[in-house]
Design a protein around this nucleic acid. Structure first.
Length: 553
RNA sequence: GCCCUCGUAGCUCAGCGGAUAGAGCACCGGCCUCCGGAGCCGGUGGCGCAGGUUCGAGUCCUGCCGAGGGCGCCA
């Protein structure tokens, strides 16, 4: 109600894209071409002299219409001149048949009003998720040692993926699958007991110092399973603490042991058996996945009676889809687990679940450079770099932002020496500094007793400086960036946007004083609102990334 | 051998099939009487190779070369 009346006062603050798309659609329909507004392709040209918005409809439809694209474009332009969208300054045909629309700055002033009107909660939201229940499983590192930098790398990325999907209307549930059973737990127990006795740790055991530290606390029985479980529990507590430092909070820590104990593994095997896909051979129980297109069959129960990882994982996914009824499941694994994907997907499909509901993302390996050496980390060898160590060195914000700079598909290289030495030059400071400057302007405003008048009483048309308009252009793009990042499961697109926004803000800050005495009152007022809009946008972006937005640094 | 991912500036990475490919770091040169110089402005420098699809390819397809990962009754 309040919002509606405010919009009326402002003369409407509709987002630009749909309004322009509607105008193009009307023009096309006047030409006898039926394209609904939703499918009108509009883009923001990279070059300013190509206008504020551009459409390639003439190019796309040329073949079907059997007419030269430039001719169609000219006609389209003419119709847009007769029945223009708001703020239209001029239309021109360019290149092979683009129709470029030049708008007056008013469209960006509308953007400003929209940003501050919707605020941090409302601006740049999307409903493309349509309320779909999605479970995201990530990290799931085995509780046999501390989480390393690679875990945090994908973890922060996936956590932000969850945040951006939440903003896009998905109901996100985060889970960590705890592999707390089987041979590795016995190996952990064996290593712990060896350390307690002061013996050498077995070659196949866990060599890390953390095992020795745990051993001094262990006063349980000399029994592999018990010792292993005890150690795993302690390690898991530490993992939880470490991940919380990076702002990762899970809705559920799902224990494999509990899956096995509940009988779910047996039930899952029965389910697959009822499809005629399970039988025994050589004392083991097999999933005949090759019949579904796998390159070989897979063991579900080993001849020693232990369930395989696959069996537990299938039971877990049966629980996700058939018991808890998630609409969609996203698993984020490291690329070193690529071998699991095929059999897991086929297993899920065999259960009668549409495999399209399962998205398995593989995070490519992160290679660490330290002391000029590149190397893979090995938990068993104990030579990994602990995530806690990196956070101690460069902070949680920098750790998160670094991992959110590149795509999951990119095998990133992290030069620890460089990152540590350049921690003050880190990209995170660039964006946080912009936020701190905004807060600083606000502090000065209050100090000087300057009121910020209601938006309706401020003349935004005074904002015509290139720096001001560039800043508004960035803000105008945020809703599209968020929707795209959610759709593509690609939160790093938000990182790119945040850096751009920080850049446009710094440029504005440098050239456009807000509170200086030389600035007229009306302009100060308009710029104060522009600064507020920048604050809103930056806060939204940083919140999605899980990076803090400090008021001072 | 087969499968997956990736080859973009000296380095680390961006780049919904659009027009003259961007940023940070590094290097060179400018800018603080004025809201925070952790900033701004300018310069040097690049799509692995070869075909194909398209009005248009860094982006899609094929092949080759190179890098990483996978192909266990490990997880």
């Amino acid at each position: 109600m309040r919002r509606r009346s405010r919009r009326a006062i402002l003369g409407g603050t509709m987002a630009a894209r749909p309004v322009i798309a509607a105008a193009v659609s009307r023009a096309l329909s006047a030409m006898g071409i039926d394209v609904d507004a939703a499918s009108v392709h509009l883009e923001r040209p990279a070059r300013r002299d190509h206008g504020d918005w551009s459409t390639n409809t003439a190019l796309v439809n040329a073949k079907a219409l059997g007419r030269p694209p430039r001719q169609i474009a000219e006609e389209l332009a003419e119709h847009l001149r007769t029945d223009p969208p708001p703020h239209l300054a001029s239309v021109e045909v360019a290149g092979p048949g683009f129709v470029n629309l030049h708008l007056t700055p008013g469209w960006l002033h509308d953007t400003l009003a929209e940003v501050v009107g919707e605020g941090e909660e409302g601006y740049a939201r999307s409903d493309i998720g349509a309320g779909e229940k999605v479970q995201i499983e990530f990290i799931s590192a085995n509780p046999t040692g501390p989480v390393h930098v690679g875990n945090g790398w994908w973890g922060a990325y996936t956590d932000a993926m969850g945040r951006v999907m939440t903003r896009c209307g998905w109901q996100v549930h985060r889970e960590y699958y705890v592999n707390d059973t089987g041979g590795q737990i016995r190996a952990l127990g064996e290593s712990l007991l060896a350390r307690r006795r002061g013996d050498a740790v077995p070659e196949e055991g866990y060599q890390g110092e953390y095992v020795a530290e745990l051993a001094t606390d262990y006063d349980g029985p000399e029994e592999l399973e018990a010792a292993g479980r005890w150690a795993a529990q302690r390690i898991l507590d530490n993992i939880r603490t470490t991940l919380a430092r990076l702002g990762m909070i899970f809705d559920e820590w799902y224990s494999q042991a509990s899956v096995e104990e509940s009988g779910a593994v047996r039930e899952t095997i029965e389910l697959l058996k009822s499809k005629g896909l399970v039988d025994e051979e050589d004392g083991a129980v097999w999933f005949r996945s090759s019949r579904l297109g796998d390159n070989r069959d897979r063991v579900l129960v080993k001849s020693n009676g232990d369930a395989t990882y696959l069996a537990g994982d299938l039971a877990y996914h049966r629980d996700k889809f058939l018991v808890r009824h998630f609409d969609r499941v996203i698993d984020v694994f490291g690329a070193d687990h690529a071998g699991q994907v095929k059999s897991l997907t086929l297993g899920v499909q065999a259960m009668g679940v549409d495999p399209g509901r399962l998205e398995v993302k593989l995070g490519q390996m992160v290679s660490l450079v330290q002391g000029g050496q590149t190397g893979r980390m090995s938990r068993r060898a104990g030579n990994f770099v602990a995530l806690d160590e990196l956070i101690d060195d460069i902070g949680a914000d920098a750790t998160r932002l670094l991992s959110l700079m590149s795509s999951l598909d990119q095998a990133a290289v992290l030069d620890l020496d460089l990152v540590r030495s350049q921690s003050m030059e880190n990209p995170v400071y660039y964006v946080q500094y912009a936020h701190a400057r905004i807060a600083s302007i606000e502090r000065r405003r209050v100090e000087r007793g300057i009121d910020r008048r209601p938006l309706g009483d401020v003349d935004l048309s005074l904002l015509v400086h290139d720096r001001e308009l560039e800043l508004l252009r960035s803000l105008e793009e945020l809703p599209d960036v968020v929707a795209e990042a959610g759709r593509d499961r690609a939160p790093h697109k938000v990182t790119a946007w945040v850096r751009t926004l920080a850049g446009t803000f710094h440029g504005f800050y440098h050239d456009c004083p807000v509170l200086a005495e030389t600035v007229a009152d009306d302009l100060t007022q308009a710029r104060l609102w522009l600064v507020e809009a920048a604050r809103v946008g930056l806060a939204i972006g940083l919140d999605i990334l899980g990076v803090s937005a400090p008021d001072s640094m």
